Amino acid sequence: MTRILIVDDQEMIRIGLRTILGTHPGFDVVGDVGDGLEAVRFVREQPVDVVLMDIRMPGVDGVEATRRIRETHPAERTRIVILTTFEEDETVLAALRAGANGFLSKAAGPAELTAGINEVAAGGGALSAAAAAALIGHVTEQPAVTVDAAMADRFAALTPRERDVVSAIASGLDNDQIAATMFISPYTVKTHANRAMAKVGARDRAQLVAFAYRAGIAR
Score class of each variant (00 low, 15 high):
residue 132 A to E: 09
residue 124 G to R: 09
residue 29 V to Q: 10
residue 28 D to M: 02
residue 125 G to R: 08
residue 85 T to L: 11
residue 139 V to C: 04
residue 84 T to L: 02
residue 71 E to M: 05
residue 91 T to Q: 05
residue 59 G to V: 09
residue 154 R to I: 04
residue 40 V to Y: 03
residue 126 A to P: 02
residue 52 L to I: 00
residue 14 R to N: 14
residue 121 A to Q: 01
residue 155 F to R: 10
residue 22 G to Q: 03
residue 106 K to D: 08
residue 92 V to L: 06
residue 115 A to E: 13
residue 59 G to T: 08
residue 118 N to R: 10
residue 83 L to C: 04
residue 127 L to V: 12
residue 13 I to A: 08
residue 119 E to H: 03
residue 74 P to K: 02
residue 18 R to N: 15
residue 66 T to R: 00
residue 143 P to M: 06
residue 63 V to N: 01
residue 35 D to W: 05
residue 16 G to S: 15
residue 48 V to D: 02
residue 153 D to N: 14
residue 105 S to V: 15
residue 112 E to G: 01
residue 83 L to F: 10
residue 113 L to V: 04
residue 55 I to M: 14
residue 49 D to S: 08
residue 27 F to I: 09
residue 34 G to E: 08
residue 134 A to Q: 07
residue 29 V to H: 11
residue 21 L to E: 07
residue 51 V to L: 00
residue 38 E to Q: 14
residue 145 V to F: 14
residue 149 A to D: 15
residue 17 L to R: 09
residue 17 L to G: 13
residue 110 P to R: 06
residue 68 R to N: 00
residue 130 A to R: 11
residue 100 A to R: 01
residue 129 A to F: 11
residue 148 D to H: 08
residue 151 M to S: 10
residue 63 V to Y: 01
residue 123 G to E: 03
residue 54 D to G: 00
residue 120 V to M: 01
residue 108 A to W: 09
residue 38 E to S: 09
residue 131 A to C: 09
residue 126 A to M: 06
residue 83 L to S: 01
residue 145 V to P: 15
residue 69 I to A: 00
residue 44 R to A: 14
residue 45 E to F: 04
residue 87 E to C: 09
residue 131 A to G: 12
residue 95 A to T: 05
residue 40 V to I: 07
residue 109 G to N: 12
residue 26 G to W: 10
residue 153 D to V: 13
residue 48 V to W: 08
residue 135 L to F: 02
residue 61 D to E: 08
residue 24 H to V: 12
residue 79 R to V: 04
residue 152 A to F: 07
residue 141 E to N: 15
residue 134 A to K: 02
residue 83 L to W: 03
residue 96 L to S: 03
residue 134 A to I: 11
residue 77 R to Y: 02
residue 64 E to F: 01
residue 140 T to N: 13
residue 61 D to L: 14
residue 130 A to F: 14
residue 46 Q to Y: 12
residue 78 T to S: 03
residue 29 V to E: 02
residue 73 H to E: 13
residue 105 S to W: 11
residue 122 A to I: 12
residue 146 T to L: 12
residue 100 A to L: 01
residue 109 G to T: 08
residue 19 T to S: 15
residue 65 A to R: 00
residue 40 V to D: 04
residue 136 I to R: 05
residue 24 H to T: 13
residue 89 D to N: 08
residue 11 E to N: 09
residue 142 Q to I: 09
residue 74 P to M: 07
residue 30 V to H: 02
residue 61 D to R: 15
residue 133 A to C: 12
residue 56 R to T: 07
residue 27 F to K: 03
residue 74 P to S: 03
residue 51 V to K: 00
residue 83 L to D: 03
residue 49 D to N: 13
residue 96 L to V: 05
residue 15 I to L: 15
residue 88 E to C: 05
residue 99 G to S: 06
residue 89 D to K: 06
residue 115 A to T: 12
residue 64 E to S: 05
residue 33 V to W: 00
residue 57 M to S: 01
residue 15 I to M: 15
residue 81 V to H: 04
residue 45 E to V: 07
residue 83 L to Q: 04
residue 16 G to W: 14
residue 60 V to S: 03
residue 41 R to E: 14
residue 101 N to D: 07
residue 127 L to K: 03
residue 138 H to T: 12
